[in-house]
C-alpha cells in the first residue's frame, strides 16, 4: 500500500510525527542558509548518518532512494559552469545546488520512511493543516504503486501491438510515449472520479470537526528531541549570521 514505510524499530520511528515534521522543515531551512560546499557536504553526510543510526535505514536503502535523482544532479553540476563565469564559481554553485537537492530529498525520505501514513496525516492535522490536505498527500502516495502497475500493463498492451520504445531518436521515443500516456491519463481520471464518489458515499466532509481513533501525544523524549533540533537550528543560524561561516559571495 504505502510505498516508503516498512515498520522498523528505530529512534526516529518512535518519535512523535510533529517532531519529525518540524525537524525536517528546519533541516531543509538550514541547508538553504549555506551555499558553501565545505559546509553543505558535511551537513549532507551528517543527515545520512542520522538516517543510518537514528532512523535504522541502511546506506544501501538510502542510495537506492537517491539514485533516481542522479541525472538531475549530473545536469546541475555540468550546466552551472557553462552558464556562469568564472567557471570555478560556476562549478562551485553547481555542486552547491546538487548537494542541496540531494539533502532536500534525503530529509523528505527520512520523514516518509520513519513515519506511517496515519501518523503523518495526524501530525500535519495537529500542526494546524486542514485534514483534506493531509488526505490528499496520503492518497497521492497511495497511488504511486498503483499507477506504476497500470503503466506497466498499458506498456504490455502496446508492446503487443508492435510498439517499441527502445527504437528511434529521443524525439521519436518521446512521441511514442503518447501511446502510454493517454490511456494512463484516461484511467487516472476515471479512478479519481470513482474515488471521489467513494469518499462522498462514506460521508467525507459530513462534519466540520474530525475526531481520531488513534491519537498521538508528546512524551518526554519528544520534547527532548524537539529541544535538540531547535538548539541545532539556532546554532546553524548563529554560525551563518553571527560568525559568517558557510557563505560565498556571488561575484558578477
Amino acid at each position: 500500500m504505502y510505498p516508503f514505510y516498512p515498520q522498523r524499530d528505530s529512534l526516529l520511528s518512535s518519535l512523535d510525527p510533529r517532531v519529525k515534521i518540524i525537524g525536517t522543515a528546519l533541516g531543509i531551512a538550514s541547508i538553504m542558509l549555506y551555499n558553501d560546499p565545505k559546509v553543505l557536504l558535511p551537513l549532507f553526510l551528517l543527515f545520512v548518518l542520522v538516517g543510518k543510526y537514528l532512523g535504522g535505514i541502511s546506506l544501501r536503502e538510502q542510495l537506492a532512494l537517491m539514485k533516481p535523482l542522479l541525472p538531475v544532479v549530473i545536469i546541475t553540476i555540468v550546466v552551472w559552469p557553462v552558464i556562469y563565469k568564472p567557471r570555478v564559481m560556476g562549478l562551485l554553485f553547481g555542486i552547491t545546488f546538487a548537494v542541496r537537492l540531494l539533502t532536500f530529498a534525503l530529509l523528505t525520505f527520512l520523514l516518509l520512511m520513519t513515519t506511517s501514513q496515519r501518523e503523518l496525516i495526524l501530525g500535519f492535522v495537529k500542526l494546524g493543516i486542514p485534514y483534506e490536505f493531509g488526505l490528499t498527500i496520503s492518497i497521492a502516495l497511495r497511488y504511486i504503486p498503483t499507477l506504476y502497475m497500470l503503466s506497466r500493463n498499458i506498456m504490455d498492451a502496446q508492446k503487443s501491438r508492435g510498439w517499441e520504445i527502445e527504437k528511434g531518436s529521443f524525439i521519436t521515443r518521446a512521441r511514442k510515449m503518447t501511446a502510454v500516456l493517454i490511456p494512463l491519463l484516461v484511467a487516472s481520471l476515471k479512478t479519481a472520479h470513482e474515488l471521489s464518489i467513494a469518499l462522498e458515499s462514506r460521508g467525507f466532509g459530513a462534519s466540520k470537526k474530525r475526531t481520531f481513533l488513534y491519537d498521538i501525544r508528546m512524551r518526554r523524549r519528544d520534547y527532548i528531541a524537539m529541544g535538540i533540533i531547535v538548539i541545532l537550528f539556532a546554532l546553524s543560524l548563529y554560525a551563518r549570521y553571527g560568525l559568517g561561516i558557510g557563505h560565498v559571495e556571488l561575484r558578477y
Binding site: 497500470l150 500493463n153 498499458i154 504490455d156 498492451a157 502496446q158 508492446k159 503487443s160 501491438r161 508492435g162 503518447t178 501511446a179 502510454v180 500516456l181 493517454i182 490511456p183 484516461v186 484511467a187
Partner: peptide, 17 residues
Amino acid sequence: LSRKVGYVFQNPEHMFF
C-alpha cells in the same frame, strides 16, 4: 512475435490513444 500471437488485453481502454 506480435505477427504470430495477438494478445487482446482485458481492459480495451488500456490500449486506446
